[in-house]
Design a protein around this nucleic acid. Structure first.
Length: 104
DNA sequence: GTGATGACGGAAA
DNA sequence: CTTTCCGCCATCA
């Protein structure tokens, strides 16, 4: 169904994008991680903002592109408990990175 | 309307 | 390998 031009949905673009980000976060299986860029290419900072607002999602499975963890020790402990391969204080993205669903 | 900020990314040194 | 810098988009003051 398509909304005619001029007809702005009550759902703003931001909410739509936000919902999409959350959907992708929930899609991350246990033992794997994803990057902010995978959640929302072009606006990774926005993805981070969304996670900071929503605590009812597996936020600990979202790390930086280089494998570093914004939440530090807490996040690292959770990921380690799920069996996420680590390399020092960084996640081994080569193995733990879950393929981004562009369709979602 | 402009300007500053951020759970970032990628390239350069 | 680490550190530094610039750019990206959306949000908030």
């Amino acid at each position: 169904m398509v909304a005619p031009p001029g007809t702005i949905s009550r759902v703003t673009a931001a909410e739509s994008r936000r919902d999409r980000v959350l959907a992708r976060v929930r899609a991350i299986p246990e033992g794997y991680v994803r990057t902010y860029g995978d959640l929302d290419p072009g606006a990774p900072r926005f993805a981070g903002l969304v996670l900071s607002e929503c605590h009812d999602v597996p936020w600990h499975r979202v790390v930086r592109a280089d494998g570093s963890m914004p939440q530090g020790a807490e996040q690292r402990r959770r990921l380690l408990a799920e069996g996420v391969p680590m390399r020092g204080d960084r996640v081994d993205m080569k193995e733990a990175r879950f393929p981004p669903d562009l369709a979602l």
